[in-house]
């Protein structure tokens, strides 16, 4: 098996190396990828959406269908993990511990977690809501917010984290984020614009079309952030406890 795989991979590598000759050079400004569509995004994006970060504008406005269904894919993944693993508790622990077996954790870890976690959550909210002007947005903010719950679970215990953020609540947050995203699109549709055409929000919010698109991007990013945060926590709960939600990492 192994020598055969090596031969096949070597042949594929040679074939693909010869194919690179026809591809454009490294960092060529005139390459096909940089000449057709993306200059339009850069040159018109600021005037149309009032968002200096072009990546956020393209992510949540020009390609918002893509982002909507990406968040639905992430949501579906958390449901699949739950369907595969979730089961009622058997009462027997099969865990090979990599952590102290004594009850709870020590004071230093708890104190550090107490001082770090609130700062981390505020930073996650900052990243989410400052995504128009700096690197960041829904995905990054959501992942950092979910990581704060993972840190809570690592420094205390899984039960303690699940008292704060219950499993049912996690699933509701998963669904609500995607629903918020789709709901914004439906509101735009009801106002007589296209699905996810944020200019339709201008009448409701009482602002110009450009600012309505900016606010629409913010609302959509919040939806993505909620979904991603809940999915990260859900993945951790399921995988760390082996599905029975008894005892985690």
């Amino acid at each position: 098996m192994k020598p055969f795989a090596r031969i096949i991979l070597f042949l594929c590598a040679v074939m693909m190396l010869t194919a690179t000759v026809d591809l454009p050079d490294w960092a060529d400004p005139g390459s096909p990828a940089s000449t057709h569509l993306s200059p339009g995004f850069i040159e018109q994006g600021y005037h149309e959406t009032a968002t200096p970060n072009v990546v956020t504008a393209v992510l949540a406005d020009y390609r918002s269908y893509d982002t909507l269904f990406e968040s639905v894919v992430v949501f579906a993944a958390s449901l699949v993990v739950m369907l595969v693993l979730r089961r009622t508790s058997t009462g027997t622990s099969r865990i090979k511990h990599f952590r102290p077996k004594r009850e709870g954790r020590d004071t230093i870890l708890r104190g550090a977690a107490q001082s770090i976690i609130p700062v981390m959550q505020i930073f996650a909210l900052y990243v989410l809501f400052h995504g128009h002007y700096s690197p960041g947005g829904g995905f990054q903010g959501g992942v950092i917010f979910g990581a704060s719950f993972i840190l809570l679970s690592l420094c205390y215990s899984l039960k303690f984290a699940m008292q704060r953020f219950k499993e049912k609540m996690v699933l509701i947050c998963c669904a609500c984020g995607a629903l918020l995203y789709a709901g914004i699109g439906a509101v735009c549709l009801a106002m007589g614009w296209n699905f996810l055409g944020y200019a339709g929000l201008a009448g409701l919010l009482g602002v110009t079309d450009v600012m309505a698109r900016s606010h629409g991007i913010l609302a959509v990013e919040a939806g993505v952030g909620i979904t991603v945060m809940a999915v990260m926590v859900s993945l951790y709960y399921d995988l760390a406890s082996g599905g029975d939600m008894e005892e985690g990492l």
């Binding site: 511990h97 990599f98 952590r99 102290p100 077996k101 004594r102 020590d106 870890l109």
Partner: peptide
Amino acid sequence: AIIDAGYE
């Protein structure tokens, strides 16, 4: 935390 885990 790493040293504590190693000790345990």
